[in-house]
């Protein structure tokens, strides 16, 4: 048993519900950042020691997931007139229900899968699946580009949790996973462009190219 890690994973799961139920984009960004901090602490708890690998992954995760990307998103928010996700394709209450169902299914599914027994934490696999599902729900049911990016971040957090299972055996694959964050950073630039285009499409697209070069 690894109760500290499991407790941390329960917190991660709770934050998933925050993301699903909130309409204020700012608070979703804070929630995702908080999740990033928790994920950063997890490698040390799961493996119960502070080796070089764990430190690299921890520091990298916190720097990217909890500081760098949320900051970029906040800066993007400052330039935008949007504050809330107003008309999601699926309502907040329904998406909470979907999230609850997803978490239940993940727990049931994970109980059936064989484990390698590399870590003491019981909740790693179900928490990872549930977080991935949460990310999917947000990605597919929200219409604002910035919320979609947040959904993608949650999805990726889920994958990160799964990666912890393999941190000892296959460090390369896990470290590569952190690269996915870099990908997101570039992705975030895409979102700004997207918004600029939305802003200017009503005026003239020439303004857009004037801005670009």
């Amino acid at each position: 048993m690894n109760s500290a890690a499991d407790a941390m994973l329960v917190l991660v799961l709770l934050l998933n519900f925050f993301v699903l139920g909130s309409s204020r984009i700012r608070s979703i960004i804070y929630t995702v950042a908080a999740q990033g901090v928790l994920l950063g602490i997890l490698p040390v708890l799961v493996h119960g020691e502070l080796g070089v690998r764990e430190t690299i992954v921890s520091v990298g995760a916190i720097a990217l997931k909890a500081v760098f990307i949320p900051r970029m998103l906040m800066r993007a928010m400052a330039d935008l007139p949007i504050r809330r996700e107003i008309e999601p394709l699926v309502g907040f209450r329904l998406s909470l229900l979907l999230g609850a169902a997803g978490t239940g299914i993940s727990l049931a599914l994970a109980a059936r899968l064989p484990t390698a027994g590399t870590t003491g934490a019981q909740l790693l696999v179900p928490a990872s699946f549930a977080t991935i599902l949460t990310g999917f729900i947000v990605l597919t049911t929200r219409v604002k580009a910035i919320t979609q990016v947040l959904g993608y971040l949650v999805l990726e957090n889920g994958i990160f949790i799964f990666g912890l299972l393999l941190l000892k055996a296959m460090p390369f694959l896990v470290e590569v996973g952190v690269l996915l964050d870099l990908f997101v950073a570039i992705f975030v630039m895409g979102i700004m462009i997207n918004h600029i285009s939305r802003e200017f499409s009503s005026i003239s697209t020439e303004r857009l190219s004037a801005l670009k070069e």
Binding site: P114, T115, A116, T118, L139, Y152, V184
Partner: peptide, 22 residues
């Protein structure tokens, strides 16, 4: 990128499949 993320999860699962098989 969602596709790429799922491919990463798949790669991790493949790695875990090897681990779970001993």
């Amino acid at each position: 990128s969602v596709g790429i993320a799922l491919a990463l999860l798949g790669s991790l699962c493949l790695g875990y499949s090897s681990l779970a098989g001993g």
